[in-house]
């Protein structure tokens, strides 16, 4: 073996080790978070946590039933708002990729994606809360929706553009109009991926706290009204973690654990949905 070749092999080896180290460093925080959340949270989780309301200050026990339902309502509103808007917008970007309007929309989506979530919260506050002078579930849902839209737009666009051009031609050659070809062939072909993108976006906004602070506000009582302040897991965890009570700390851990589980469930659901849909796409 020549000296040169030895040197190259050594370099290759060193680089492999560096890559492996980088992976470990990246995974350590994730592992630690999971470990700590499970250790502290799983023990604190009990049936009461799911079914009971928060107890008055000073009393132990109780649960976060209102916050769990509140979070579901909030991400439900966000999804109802963001999926159609983001999806249709993504279809437009994929269909007319070169126009000035599309470039502007794409740029706007990327900027919106990078806007701090608290700023989006302030925007929703100005848009929904100020006119009616009341914090509401609707305002919170809209704030989360604004955070979701750019993710849905960009994943939809990217995935639609991956669909082979032959499918479009096949549909058009059979006498489909352009919109028909898009909605009956191209979108279904990309649907597994789009759905994953949507679920990932949902998981992301389910964990947001900042945009809810002055939109949905939080609520210690049972409320499912869209026009009233509503509780959410994230805000509840935030409030409880700041409190001086041990029992509230325990419940905050349980809430954090539940949030992680919700996000995990959404990710698993995304994978299962993809597998089901892809059965038609691949042999």
């Amino acid at each position: 073996m020549t000296a040169n070749l030895r040197r190259r092999k050594l370099f290759s080896r060193v680089f492999e080790v560096l890559c492996a180290l980088a992976v470990v460093v990246a995974l350590i925080p994730l592992a630690m978070i999971l470990f700590y959340v499970i250790k502290e949270g799983a023990g604190a989780l009990n049936w009461d946590f799911f079914t009971k309301m928060p107890k008055p200050v000073g009393e132990t026990g109780g649960g976060m039933a209102n916050a769990i339902v509140g979070t579901l309502i909030l991400i439900g509103i966000a999804a109802l708002f963001a999926i159609p808007v983001g999806g249709i917008c993504g279809v437009h970007l994929a269909e007319y990729p070169e126009t000035k309007f599309s470039s502007a929309v794409r740029f706007a989506a990327d900027v919106l994606n990078g806007v701090p979530s608290i700023v989006v919260g302030i925007f929703a506050y100005g848009l929904v809360v100020l006119p009616v002078k009341r914090f509401s579930a609707l305002a919170g849902g809209v704030a989360l929706g604004f955070l979701m839209v750019p993710i849905v737009v960009r994943t939809t666009e990217e995935l639609l553009r991956l669909v082979p051009g032959g499918l479009r031609e096949g549909a058009l050659a059979l006498g489909a109009t352009r919109s028909r070809a898009v909605f009956s062939v191209i979108v279904p072909a990309a649907l597994p991926g789009i759905l994953t993108g949507i679920l990932v976006a949902l998981a992301r906004v389910a964990g947001e706290t900042a945009p809810l602070l002055f939109t949905a506000l939080g609520n210690r009582f049972w409320s499912t009204s869209l026009t009233q302040p509503i509780a959410s897991l994230t805000v509840q965890v935030y409030t409880y973690a700041q409190s001086p009570y041990d029992d509230w700390h325990r419940q905050a851990w349980a809430g954090a654990f539940l949030l992680v589980m919700i996000i995990l469930t959404l990710s698993i659901a995304a994978r299962l949905a993809v597998r089901r849909l892809e059965r038609m796409n691949r042999p």
Binding site: P164, G170, R282
Partner: peptide
Amino acid sequence: FQKSNPFPKS
């Protein structure tokens, strides 16, 4: 077409 392009359907 040159490249067969069945839709990802049944």
